[in-house]
Design a protein around this nucleic acid. Structure first.
Lengths: 340, 340
DNA sequence: ATTAATAATTTAATCGTTTAAACAACAGGT
DNA sequence: ACCTGTTGTTTAAACGATTAAATTATTAAT
């Protein structure tokens, strides 16, 4: 490995001090520096292929221009799509992203955050997992800038960017009801996470608002780390009883992905025998014979906004920004109105 | 922001030198240090919630325990799945991952690599893009440890881990031919990338080996950054002429994703009217009415092996490891043999 | 020619850690 | 009493950059 060139090397070859080299390469004190010397320094820097050691700079300036991204699982399309958006937005401001997956486990998240902080990230973007309130409160106490994405805790006064889950589901439900569906099932998660419960609340409120009595067999609440088999089973139960549902609302793309497979296996026609709505788009839904109605999350806006809020709060740590963004209902064939 | 505690703070409260604190917390010189003092130091470190400044440590030790991951696009499932595997493997060795997307553009890749190197990553995992040979040769010259994933350049003697593309496609083709398909089309990329051309070579060789004369209308070569419309058009051409193909081989999951949609739109039955094979699995293929035969890439092995090779070559920079892993052909309904 | 003002550059401390080398204090052996 | 060895700890330099303050060189003004 050819030794990397440092300011010192440049300084020596040119015959000046490292300070001067630093000033020149950072375009500081421009008017005070001899143009010829500056030119020479730049030339030598180029020749020696100088790359500033960001680590050394960080140590001195106490800024790493790095943000930490904590997702549940980077291989999940929702996470990776947002990761990409965040990467691009961060890059615009010359920030780089360190990431890690928490697998929805507070312990793992804790370890991850700790690792990222040891690396002196300037701030964190977190998809928080269930039960991480205490950790987050601690971060807050330590004055570390962070923004929550997708989920948040109403009892914590933190920055966050999330979907207006209640509104989105309510909108979807109203659409189903307006289209003539009456026995509407929902497959969602059993969790204490506020945002997911908002989805449930949206479902229940919509039923109530339309005077449709709720039956508890319509609501399937699955663990966050649910297996594909369990999703299959839940969908099966919704669709094969004596009084099957005539529409299903899936609370995540993973649930929809496996749920639709089961609908295929049962040879049910969509939407004639069962209408379907999913939260969160996926290009792959188009492989299904009937295009699926879904709630489009404003991913671009979520990612960009979250990143901007974080960078703002890194600059000056004062305000708290909380954003509940609207989802858009994209109506496709899977919820065609029942003609009667 | 409460000031972070440093070694100095601990040293001062205990009343010893920072050196001693460092030795204790790093479990060095254990037998030479007074047990009571050591205990006291650990206690105070705990109380003050000490977190070592990895930046300072890196500056001194010249090791960041960070690897840089350069993918084409982190939001692509292939990339993000591998990213997750790499993350886990890296974590086992206490490494953290900095990532960035190159969008298949050498310029962007260059900038990214440069940024990562400025941050003193210990090594790089790269999904190289077309035309990056010079860059990679340069990296090599500088003695920077790196491993290529998925693609490689036969003229460069670098570490790499990739699929045996020729073998995989050949296997798929043989299966199609053995199942009675004769007019086999392929949708692939028009590129100088070696591994993708190996796919084309596998296709052509299989035809030749089975004495099936190749027709150039069967082969659709699309740009790497092809739009969904162009994929649609290519599939359309393969399937709607006077002599349509009776099977299609898709060279990537993105091609398959849009290709299958067009097959849906044309209301063609799979496999009766057209058989389908895709490289690279995707859970979402299961949404298609007919399960799709595909070549399963050994992602876990690829990611783990690449990471291991990188960490090895960070430790001692000597050998070059090149691995062409076998793909597994997973046979499903989409290539059901033609009964005759 | 002297002084003052300005221009150009250097000095030196600092960030938080690591680590070789030096040092102090004491024990045991002669 | 003196040397030797061991134990426990400190000193101080180093990593590669930044930057306030000090210093020197040059020019302009009197």
């Amino acid at each position: 490995m050819t030794k990397k060139t440092s300011l010192k090397d440049i300084a020596q070859t040119v015959g000046v001090s490292t300070a001067l080299v630093s000033y020149v390469l950072n375009n500081q004190k421009e008017n005070r520096i001899n143009k010829l010397v500056a030119k020479k320094i730049r030339e030598v820097a180029n020749e020696l292929n100088y790359r500033p050691n960001q680590i050394a700079r960080s140590l001195k300036t106490n800024k790493t221009y790095t943000i930490g991204l904590v997702v549940a699982d980077i291989s999940n399309p929702f996470s990776s799509s947002l990761a990409r958006i965040i990467e691009d937005e961060a890059d615009k401001h010359n920030y780089t992203v360190l990431f890690g997956s928490s697998d929805e486990k507070p312990g793992k998240a804790q370890k991850l955050i700790s690792t990222l902080l040891n690396r002196q990230v300037d701030g964190l973007l977190i998809f928080p997992s269930e039960g991480s309130e205490v950790q987050l409160a601690e971060l807050q106490k330590q004055g570390i800038p962070f923004v929550l994405i997708d989920r948040y805790f109403p009892e914590l006064k933190t920055n966050y960017v999330a979907l207006d889950n209640f509104g989105a589901i309510h909108k979807a439900m109203q659409h189903l009801i307006d289209s003539g569906y009456q026995r509407i099932g929902m497959v969602t998660f059993d969790t204490s996470l506020f945002n997911l419960n908002e989805r449930k609340r949206g479902y229940l409120e919509a039923l109530k608002g339309n005077k449709i009595p709720f039956r508890k067999t319509w609501l399937k609440e699955l663990k966050l780390d649910v297996s594909s088999n369990e999703i299959t089973k839940a969908v099966d139960e919704l669709l094969t009883g004596t009084k099957p549902v005539d529409a299903i609302l899936f609370a995540s793309n993973r649930l929809a992905l496996y749920g639709l497979q089961q609908i295929n296996r049962l040879h049910l026609r969509v939407p004639e025998q069962v209408a379907v709505v999913s939260i969160d788009q996926a290009e792959s839904y188009n492989l299904f014979h009937t295009p699926i109605t879904y709630i489009k999350q404003p991913l671009l806006e979520m990612g960009q906004l979250a990143t901007k809020i974080l960078l703002e709060s890194i600059k000056k740590n004062n305000t708290t920004t909380q954003a509940n963004l609207e989802g858009e209902l994209i109506i496709k064939e899977s919820t065609r109105p029942i003609d009667d």
